[in-house]
Structures are given as structure tokens and as C-alpha cells.
Design a protein around this nucleic acid. Structure first.
Lengths: 122, 122
DNA sequence: TTCAATACGGATAAATTTATCCCTGTACTT
DNA sequence: AAGTACAGGGATAAATTTATCCGTATTGAA
């Protein structure tokens, strides 16, 4: 896969949770799966900004970390459904709060994020 | 600073919050500052795994994003104190929940994280 | 006068994460 | 026979984030 060179921090709860949810699309995936969007193709339609490849990678990581699991139906064409494990379910309320906080402060956040694009003034 | 080439997603609340708190040490900094650890040197002592340089960078970003602000005392040797803005304060409860979740599930999380170091079995 | 404490940031290398492109396979439809 | 839907992953380039190293500045203490 990829041989890690730097040590992974696991001192405190913040270190640990960061390791499993700080991927570009992980909280989105957890959110949509919690909403019943379970198939890869559907998830991709709901997150069009992400490429299918990256979603697969992040889904695999969530699966490795046991936040989600998947059901592979033995049929053709293939059908797969992701679902949350108990651990995954337990984090959904926090994911919802994260999204809520972002929505509640979207005006402010969009403003500060836009500033980043502005080149430092002469 | 660094000229961004890929567009920043800002469709939903999850996109937005990711932009401001998904740095390696940002949630730690918010947590410690909320606990009254306000000076750079103290923050560094509390997060020894991080280099001083990175903490400065992340503190600057938190400041740019207006989650924290700082008070620079005009004295020698220098004295600086960071504090949370109202927006910063509003996110602290979520940061605490993140840490709590990580602590509550530390056994599980340490286990799955360790698996990553194991090379794929022959 | 040399060192410690305090805070800050440039420059560059290294590591990690994302983005892109492309290919595999089966069953059904046209 | 060729195209579509479905899910998955290899290989590699590009982007972004972190790590490292080092230099600036001032006051007081040893």
C-alpha cells in the first residue's frame, strides 16, 4: 500500500479520532451512509466533486478502521452496500454537529476561505 | 504563502468546517486554548510531538480563519497570548466531543491504527 | 560576554494525500 | 456486436501538508 515513515500519534483522544476521520471525504461518506445512501454509485452521485477512485480509497480506509462494513451481493452486475458498524453509528451525532456548525457559520467561513485565494497585497 | 491550484470545496457545512479544523494540530490547539493554555511556549509544551514551527503555522491559520485571536504585549522578552473568538468558543463543545469519542474508543482505535503498520501478509 | 528565555518566520526537503488516467469483468439491452 | 451499468484497483503525477534546519531580536542572568 504505502509504507509509513513518520510515527502515528496516539497519545490522546484527539490524536486517535483524527487518524480515522480526517480524510477529505470521510465525514461526508459517514454522513451519507447514515442517511441510507449505501451504494458506491449513489455515494458518488451525492459527492460529485470527489472522484470515484478517491471515494473507494476512503471507503476502504473506513472499512479497515471498522467504522463501516460492506455487504457484497453475489450477482451481476455487482451490487455492494455499505453500512455503519456500531462504532460508526456512534460517531454520526458528532458528524452531524460538524455539519451543523459549518452550516450555521457558512457566511463567516466562506468569507475567510475566500481570503486565502487573494494574493498577498503588494 | 502558497498558491492554491485546486478549487476549495464549499458546498456544504462539512466542506466548510473541514477547511478550518482539519489540520494536524488544530483541534489540539483549540482544546488547549479553551483550557486556558494561551501562550505559544505553553502550547508547545503541551503538544511536544509537534514542532514549534508547525504550531505557529497552524495558529496563524486559526487566526486567519478567526477562530482565535492574539494579544501581543509590547514588552521584552516577548509575550503573546492567544484566546478564542466567539466563533472559536462555539466550536469547543464539538472539539470536546471529538476527544471524548476518541478516548471512549481508544482501545479499538489503537488496534486498527496498529494494523496499518503491519505489512500485507505474504 | 556568552547563554537562556521568548516569539516569529524564510527556505527547502520529505512525506502524505489527492487527482488522473486507464484497465478488468459480467449480464443485459439495442 | 457494440454499448451500458455496476464495482474495483494499478500506476503515476500533482498538490498539499509537515518536518527540519537555521536565522532574527531583546532583556536579563550567570
Amino acid at each position: 500500500m504505502y509504507e509509513r515513515k513518520l510515527p502515528i500519534q496516539e497519545e490522546c483522544g484527539l490524536d486517535l479520532i483524527r487518524e480515522v476521520v480526517f480524510g477529505k471525504w470521510k465525514i461526508h461518506l459517514l454522513y451519507y451512509i447514515s442517511q441510507g445512501i449505501s451504494r458506491p454509485g449513489q455515494l458518488q452521485k451525492n459527492i460529485p466533486e470527489a472522484s470515484r477512485r478517491v471515494l473507494n480509497i476512503q471507503l476502504n480506509q473506513l472499512e479497515d478502521d471498522e467504522l463501516v462494513a460492506k455487504m457484497v451481493y453475489d450477482q451481476q452486475p455487482p451490487k455492494v452496500e455499505y453500512y455503519l458498524t456500531d462504532l460508526g453509528k456512534s460517531i454520526v451525532p458528532i458528524v452531524n454537529e460538524l455539519g451543523q456548525w459549518g452550516d450555521n457559520n457558512s457566511e463567516h467561513l466562506r468569507r475567510v476561505i475566500k481570503k486565502r485565494l487573494v494574493l498577498p497585497e503588494a
